[in-house]
Design a protein around this nucleic acid. Structure first.
Lengths: 229, 229
DNA sequence: GGATGTGAATGCATTCACAGCA
DNA sequence: TGCTGTGAATGCATTCACATCC
């Protein structure tokens, strides 16, 4: 597998990459220097083969007989995910969720920096929100250009979300994280991820209703919304 | 496919079920009476065959030549997901995210009712938060029993999350939605879903770095975190 | 011995394509 | 004609199992 040609990497592998990184950072904090695919897999409830294959899609990072050097692998995975550089991010929506996102720490530690907040509501524009001043959507283009912003989070009501998405795309945004409970339409060359609280809860509802299988203890990891949706 | 034996339903199909429901509710609000698998699929960027197969895992809901009756299908999907009844839900963590979750509307409309808030921090216990009074984790068991709560949301810092999860499971919770950026360990018979903001953003970072394919407009749906993890 | 990286084999999920019904 | 439901075919992801290297 040629690391310079990531065109054929399975989507699920990319999702797991984020989980590997998160887990590697835990091991690094504990002082671990190396880790095997087996150990990393166990901590996420995945097989060793899965871990090795996922990583091998991007290059040869391991050392036979040794495993992976933790610091090394962290650096490699960050590079692959693109978070070895800082991403400036903007947020639209200064409601309850928006404010929670603004004050979310451990965002910076992952390579993302929230640099601007926007809201539709004229009565909110110009007001302070924590360290930010809410800006008008009319200034979208100029703020995006000024800070070289490529990623945006949408935390507005469902009925406003598509209109906001359109404006963001038109103003040059390349990736969207949508928190509104609605399907967004964007050009195929714009990345889209979504988090819908109700959808998450519905999955739990389904799983709890259907009796579960064998009750052995199971490692469990983070979850990724995927699906362009 | 026998609707009374849901044991062999593909996981991705269940995830999409939530998206179908969300979209069906949109069509219902617009006054649509029936809808074809093609139309439903288009609105979510899925093929008609995918929609039909997914629904057929659970029963025969459609009418050849006609499509699906919207109201009917909504009722069926709710029943399948278990949201035709109300679920009482509790939340642990009265921080920024917790407060945003407390005030999230359109939660009730989906069949979930937040009935209690807990926090580790003694200085928060007993204080009002919106319509709630923050309770102590010592009262977990009694509150869970009293309200027949089976689902919980965890919105606490990463280093407290596992301990909270253990207590919740021990107190009888059957499904967890974890917002802390860490892998949780729970027994296999407890349902687990997770939302990690940083993981979501990392996926966007990756996608934006890799040049996208053909720029044709694409329908897009909601996203589901899945993966026990 | 202990571990990786990887073709080959398996298993799952999606798509095709069509019989059958309204 | 229009559309569903579904076996069969395809395609994708995971797992196996082993050659290879420290």
């Amino acid at each position: 597998m040629d690391p310079t040609k990531p065109e054929s990497v399975p989507n699920p592998a990319v999702r797991r990459l984020s989980l590997y990184l998160r887990q590697l950072e835990v091991f690094a904090r504990k002082g671990r220097r190396t880790i095997s695919s087996k150990q990393l897999g166990q901590s996420l409830n995945l097989t060793d083969a899965q871990v090795r294959k996922d990583l091998a899609y991007f290059g040869q990072f391991g050392h036979p007989g040794i495993g992976y050097r933790v610091d090394d692998l962290i650096a490699q995975v960050r590079r692959i995910l693109g978070t070895d550089k800082i991403w400036n991010v903007l947020l639209v929506g200064a409601g309850n969720l928006g404010r929670a996102l603004m004050s979310y720490k451990g965002f910076d530690a992952k390579g993302f920096r929230l640099v601007a907040i926007f809201d539709n509501d004229p009565s909110k524009v110009g007001k302070r929100q924590g360290p930010f001043v809410v800006e008008s959507l009319n200034d979208l283009r100029s703020v995006i250009d000024q800070h070289a912003i490529r990623l945006a989070m949408i935390a507005v009501p469902a009925d406003a979300a598509q209109e906001i998405a359109d404006k963001l795309v038109e103003a040059g945004i390349r990736g969207l994280l949508n928190f509104a409970p609605i399907s967004l339409n964007v050009p195929a060359d714009v990345a889209l991820n979504a988090v819908d609280l109700a959808v998450q809860m519905e999955q739990l509802s389904f799983l709890v209703n259907v009796p579960a299988s064998q009750p052995e203890r199971t490692g469990a990891g983070g979850v990724i919304g995927d699906h362009r949706g």
